[in-house]
Nucleic acid binder design. Structure first.
Lengths: 334, 334
DNA sequence: CTGTTAGCGCGTTCAT
DNA sequence: ATGAACGCGCTAACAG
């Protein structure tokens, strides 16, 4: 049924070892024989079996990617960066959604390892001791992508979320705002949640502004929660003049909430956030935000992983990519 | 180094066949022995090698997915549907971006086949003879996802693009519009391009409205091209009163172009499109559009593929999922 | 219920 | 430059 290397060998009148050499571009083959083999391959429609190859060589040229949710544009963008670089190095990607559920994450890490991936990319979730434990049992390199572990022992690529938030809030402060509310993510989340919240507090402190608890609402990163939070702020006796949202989506929710209440951005409220998703420049007013280089995070992480897989020694196994404030139209002087 | 089924067998004092049975949940094992084996597995930290398993069993419990671009929210949503169902049936996904480049598509189809995937999902590109040719050499089932082949010989899951466009334009007509412009995709693209354009023409015909070439612009599905097309319509001596865009993104571009020109939607122009991406309900005015069940397309396609892989016989190997017009706020009476 | 024995398709020495 | 033979880790008959 399926044509194997043996069939090709017979057809070409050589041994299977020679066919193997040809297929693997081993230079030790006479050009003439090489040609014969290629012809036999062509004639028979031979297709190398990557599974058998993987078993024999103990390499699968495949890397596993665990991702929170591929339908979330942020992660999709990172995934695209990963894929492009993987492609460049002739690796394939096994993609597993894990919905930021710890138990599911551990499970897919294990199935990925069973599949003998040559490396693992773990994306955007919280990294607990149990994760580190699972990683330890792996005999292949692992890099964290858009997240980091507490102890900083696992290679990772991410931005400095605290600093990004700090910069965002400072932009507001430089525009004269002092009553700045925040729509945060859950404080359980070390990166998008806690760190960004810390950046907010530090910026206030730096400006000598008192931190007020009722100017902070916790959302779930999504549009609707931005709307909800803004409704709350709108109901305050003393309203803030500016909103810092932990994500663009929540910021856009806030903007629409403001507009639906008959008020204006940035005239009545300035709004800033972190991420720079495509939609940020597709709303009116266009959103001022601190850009996170999503594609690059994926690309750099994958490149780092290839180095690790080749056992090259890398200088920095924890890389922090720069963020950048994109001034658009949702922030103005108070 | 790596612990194999032999090691477990020795440790548990049984044969490797028994270990294999335990690992594969074969009922023919005495509970007691089963327990011993499990303990040995635990003690040794044994992890089954899926590659070896794949070679021996000729099944990899992996399906290949070729996708145009994972960072495009439409495809990402379909991919999510695929993943969820795959997961449910314990399949993993190898994901390959192919950017709608034919040559790249053929290439990844072949590498996926080399990896011995148990099935293949081909998503959203044009299916040429060369594709069909590549599919033929495969010994595993294939289903097209969000696309179809001309001859309709390959199993597929999609919506009726022509009808969706027809419905969209008819919605406009029912609101009294007769001067309806279209922002189309390339007519080379049979589904999102040509079919939607045909639906537009058929709707006009049905209403006895003459088709005018200068009321149609070709875009590239993206926001910016919607802006460009709308600029053109704004420049017309006789402007249309309504815009039908082939995709939500282009529609949103058109809306912003209109608004940036100081005009209003839907007061000055009604706008409708096809897709229903998340952003459609996140812009002001919220976009009226014909929804395409993206998640379901992926889910149904994957479910169909599982049936094909199990060699169950399926009644309908070409499924058309229903679309639905979502009335929001971007369309009003003329 | 359990063990023995062949492969699965290919990479890789080691000879020649 | 080429071939013979072994083994990668596991499943799948077949015996018992």
């Amino acid at each position: 049924m399926t044509v194997t290397i043996y069939d090709v060998a017979r057809e070409a009148g050589v041994s299977m070892a020679t066919v193997s050499r040809v297929v693997n571009n081993n230079p030790n083959v006479k050009p003439q024989t090489r040609k014969k083999v290629y012809e036999a391959i062509e004639r028979l429609g031979y297709r190398p079996n990557a599974v058998a190859r993987g078993l024999a060589s103990k390499k699968t040229t495949t890397v596993g990617v665990v991702i929170p949710d591929i339908s979330n544009s942020i992660f999709a963008e990172v995934a695209r960066g990963i894929e492009d670089i993987a492609n460049m190095y002739h690796y394939n990607i096994i993609l597993c959604n894990a919905d930021k559920k710890k138990e599911k994450e551990i499970r897919v890490i294990n199935t990925l390892l069973e599949k003998q991936v040559d490396g693992l990319l773990f994306m955007g979730g919280v990294v607990t001791e149990d994760h580190v434990q699972a990683f330890r049992t792996a005999s292949v390199p692992i890099v964290l992508c858009a997240t980091t572990d507490e102890h900083g022992i696992i290679p990772s690529v991410d931005i400095d979320h605290e600093a990004a938030a700090f910069d965002a809030v400072n932009t507001l402060i430089r525009h004269g705002h002092r009553d700045i509310a925040m729509i945060s993510g859950t404080l359980q989340d070390p990166a998008n949640g806690f760190a960004r919240f810390q950046g907010y507090k530090r910026a206030l402190e730096g400006a000598g502004v008192e931190y007020k608890e009722d100017l902070v609402r916790i959302g779930n990163y999504r549009y609707e929660s931005g709307v909800e939070a803004m409704k709350y702020f709108l109901g305050l006796k003393k309203r803030p003049t500016a909103i810092f949202a932990a994500t663009d989506e929540m910021a856009i929710g806030a903007i629409h909430c403001i507009q639906d209440a008959g008020l204006k951005v940035p005239d009545d409220f300035s709004v800033i956030s972190v991420d720079n998703i495509r939609m940020a420049s597709m709303v009116r007013p266009q959103l001022t935000t601190v850009a996170q280089p999503m594609y690059d995070i994926g690309a750099v992480a994958m490149r780092l992983l290839t180095k690790l897989m080749k056992k090259e020694n890398v200088e920095h196994s924890r890389v922090i990519l720069p963020h950048e404030t994109i001034l658009r139209l949702s922030v103005s002087e108070v």
